[in-house]
Design a protein around this nucleic acid. Structure first.
Lengths: 218, 218, 218, 218
DNA sequence: TATGAATGAGTTTTCATTCAT
DNA sequence: AATGAATGAAAACTCATTCAT
């Protein structure tokens, strides 16, 4: 998918390429251990060992342990918004790439599922730390409010006007859509260990549920 | 609701009453600080201070910090199942107290919302630690599989046979129901800070969504 | 042997009889644990538990942990001298009960072996603590110099005059006798676990060695 | 004596030389304080202070206090066997350097006395801890059984065949020889504080006793 | 007399961080 | 840039001792 290439463009190439081997190893190890034990329970000593690096080396690159955490988590935040910022995204929606809301949902779920899958560890860290580090929570909320919500809103308005969605407040639709997608992804990846039935069917079930609910009568 | 009185009966009175004042203070403070900073980032020293107790006193009652965590979290696990174990629960379901699945959902959401509200801190701690302490995860899964799932299944089967629910596999219905309820509660309590619109309407929206989805066409 | 009855007379009856059940249990447990782990590595808590007594109770009877140690070890010191103080002892030696030095050695070794056997734990504690608590060392030396050495000297002088012993300084004879006896007992009880060959033969070997050495020539 | 130079060769030069200044200071201080107060009664804080080092530094090098104890005591164990492993030792015995058993005894006692004198502290620690730490006891027994006993046996057999020793079981001869030597050394160094009469005479007395006993008649 | 909860000083141990090399 | 020895402050935990009951 071309999304991914575009996604890469969004990331500061320079930051990525500047990384020495050791630095990369440090980041990788940090991600691993933070995800395994949580930030507070992780010792810089263990990160160093796993990275095959002297403990001092970590502090050459990151002044404090917390700065290392930030270095690990921050890029994720931009990656999370990335697809919504793509010029293609809006065009796709409005220029009929997505013929319907359920079509839109399908693309969204698939994309986010893929994203979640390839960043489980980072997401685990992020979610854990959002609970305790107010800065992270703030950053996260800002990103949502400034980037994702408005776009979402225009999409919902669009399909509501097309008569595809019930006449419910947009905020409610967005809330239910997002919370369902999130819980769908969490359930699949964390609780079901990404196994259970075939992904396409799993996604279909969810979309059908979102559009038509569980009730049998019209 | 009488559920709550019965709920109390389930808890080991003796354990509760045996607690000395200091012990109770220790538990309370531990809950507070664990919820604020997370288990690993909390020092026993801080708990002691907040409880107005010598640090040694904590270790008289709980051999290790982790044991204190367990003492804080374990009772919650039993409280979580409690309502499902009540004899009343089943009777209510099958003896028409719940005339419909949406009726059942309403009771369930209200009850769990109330429960979550009065145990936010504990739930926060539990969720955090489930991510890192395998024992907790195991206990949680067991409780779900042995107590909650079977009951849920019989309810779903009952209403499916009554023709109120779509002809979808029971597991799928349960998954969607539970994940929607959980995300509804999490959204309301954690993200919306329990404010936003009036609770009854919030619940209605959710139930309507679960039964009929977001789509406009029949 | 009548020695034992006399021995009891030497001990302050009052002290023994005044002991309540709990006190006796405390002393017994203290002996056990001190012998197992050493004084410094033993916690009063463990003693209390093993004695089936509250920790406070120990301090009712012994102001400090060290006082408890003293209460455990001091009686042993008097028991150690006891046989040498018996009026019988001297009489036995000089009025032909002990016809020869080797006869005397036999009685002495047998008696001390028996004594050591029934007080292994206490002796272990005593020896350990003599190494670190100067008071104990002092007490031990005093007991030796004032009670045991003089008596020993008169015995050695007696048999030397009778021509049974080589013409070596008495101090040397005493040193060699005592150190051989001590090492004989230690070897048997601690190193050989009181097993190996039959005790009588073991003692005979030792006595023969003390009298005649290892050399083959006259 | 060339024994000592050879002895040094046996010790892992590398281990010794790898030690930083601080590490050496830590070991030295540990030895001092352990010997003074006993392992359990020694605090790492005191060791650190005496070594002029931060307490954390100790734990950089030795994961636990017990590991420090091992680091202090283990090298001693190999030093104890060292002389018996020297090629020279056997040759000396059998190629007439030791013309007689008493000659052999003299060399042995002198060597061990010297050894004990230069390692009193370490030996004190070792003996104390053998009483409480089963691992140490096991290591000690193994060293004795595998290295010292067999060599001793061949020496005794050799002199027994030459008719210099009584016809007593070898085990008995070894036991009496070793226990006499040990108690001789302990008496001299610990009890007599290495003073009393001139060492040569002291050793002579002991050897004469071992060969000929205390009895006057042939 | 006995209890056992409570204490606080002390102990072992951990850990982020610094710094000379 | 990288190392790794060293630090010292703080963490978890221990323990002899006290005291209200």
């Amino acid at each position: 998918m071309s999304n991914d290439d575009l996604l890469k463009q969004l990331l500061p190439e320079n930051e990525q390429s500047k990384l020495t081997d050791k630095q990369r190893k440090i980041l990788e190890s940090a991600i691993e251990v933070f995800a395994e034990k949580g930030f507070a329970a992780t010792s810089t000593n263990e990160i160093a060992k796993r990275a095959g690096v002297a403990e001092g080396t970590i502090f050459r690159h990151y002044k404090t342990k917390k700065e290392l955490l930030a270095a690990v988590v921050t890029p994720l935040l931009s990656k999370m918004v990335a697809p919504f910022l793509l010029k293609d995204f809006k065009r796709d929606v409005f220029e009929k790439e997505y013929a319907s809301y359920s079509d839109f949902l399908r693309k969204l779920i698939e994309n986010r599922l893929k994203f979640a899958r390839s960043h489980v560890q980072l997401l685990k860290i992020l979610v854990q730390e959002i609970a305790f580090q107010p800065e992270f929570k703030a950053a996260y909320i800002e990103i949502f409010q400034e980037n994702i919500f408005p776009l979402f809103k225009s999409v919902v308005t669009y399909f509501k006007e097309k008569g595809e969605l019930k006449d419910i407040p947009e905020e409610t639709i967005i809330r239910l859509t997002i919370s369902t997608i999130v819980s769908t992804i969490v359930t699949r990846i964390i609780i079901l260990n990404d196994q259970s039935l075939d992904e396409e069917e799993y996604v279909n079930e969810t979309i059908h549920f979102m559009m038509n609910g569980l009730g049998s009568k019209s």
